[in-house]
Design a protein around this nucleic acid. Structure first.
Lengths: 189, 189
DNA sequence: GTCTATACACGGATAGAC
DNA sequence: GTCTATCCGTGTATAGAC
């Protein structure tokens, strides 16, 4: 073969990483296959050697992104209140609001995932539930884990719609305070 | 004139209402001008007698939707704990999850609003801040109002990504419980 | 596997008749 | 104000050469 098996893997990985950034920046339906390929220095036609359709790419992006989020947010198993606080601070930060392309996929792609076919949503559910389980274990409460997860996602969606940095900051700070307060009340396992 | 001034107003209103439904169902960038006009029984070309561009329509949709949300969620001024609970129950319900086209625009259009130009985001900010003020007055806390607003939006975004109704219900119920508990602790003004 | 070329549908927007 | 026709760009996807 003129191209090594390794080459294909590497190209696929580059495509996934680059496409995830583009999708989080501009929305997945907005970006075209041609643009996604050009972004990694290839032509549009080469796309279909890696994915049979754009939808299949989306599923792969969602899986990759959420696996990464699980990694970032669930920690290495030993999660104490300090690490938890650091996690929250990073998620509910202005830099996260300002750089959607580098952050969590749920606030940006949530609506698009919700409109996708079953394959994508099943993938999303699997990873979201893993994320939830991880937090529920740390917090000692299934309900609280879902509530905090929702609130974090919502805070970013709301803050990103706004124009004024001060108001954005207020939104982030409010969720951060309410969550910290609730966790302090609850105590960790 | 062959068409009354009233006719234009009515057509514009029909277009706005119908387009909002389409946008909430399929995403604004996904739907085409032609489809939006056909949905109210007109041809695509007639669109530009009402809006100079698709973006201008989006701004109008956002304003109309958020004004409506403010109306639904802020109540008529006299908001007691019973009305508040009814509001939350409706927002965090399975029918709201299942029928995005009939519900709040923030969870569905939030990401698209965030990517829009300043005109749209300024309109969004104005109405979101009014909504916040209304809730803050009721709750007696700016911070709590932002936190609850974010959590409600986030819960819908998260629930809609999922496939299994039981998990969706759990997400909704968790946020509902946490919010009710927090409000009970806080007390109303 | 990647390229160029292409088929084909649909996007937003405009022009002129009624 | 609405229609039909049209311009022009872009979208996804495929075919065949290398």
């Amino acid at each position: 073969m003129r191209y090594s098996a390794n080459h294909k893997m590497e190209t696929r990985e580059k495509l996934l990483a680059s496409s995830a950034v583009s999708a989080k920046k501009s929305g997945f339906s907005t970006v075209g296959v041609d643009g996604l390929m050009k972004a990694i220095g290839l032509s549009g036609g080469a796309f279909y050697s890696h994915f049979s359709s754009k939808d299949e790419l989306f599923k792969a992006i969602v899986e990759r992104e959420l696996a990464q989020s699980l990694d970032r947010l669930s920690g290495d198993g030993a999660m104490d209140s300090v690490k938890l606080e650091r996690c929250l601070k990073q998620y509910l930060s202005m830099s996260h609001v300002e750089q959607p392309e580098a952050g969590c996929a749920l606030p940006v792609l949530g609506a698009e995932i919700a409109r996708s076919d079953m394959a994508v949503r099943e993938a999303a559910q699997t990873w979201i539930c893993r994320l939830h389980e991880s937090w529920a274990r740390i917090l000692g409460s299934d309900s609280l884990a879902w509530a905090i997860l929702s609130q974090c996602v919502g805070a970013l969606v709301v803050a990103r719609m706004l124009v004024t940095p001060q108001v954005q900051r207020e939104v982030l700070k409010s969720s951060h305070e309410e969550i910290s307060r609730r966790i302090a009340e609850q105590g960790l396992d």
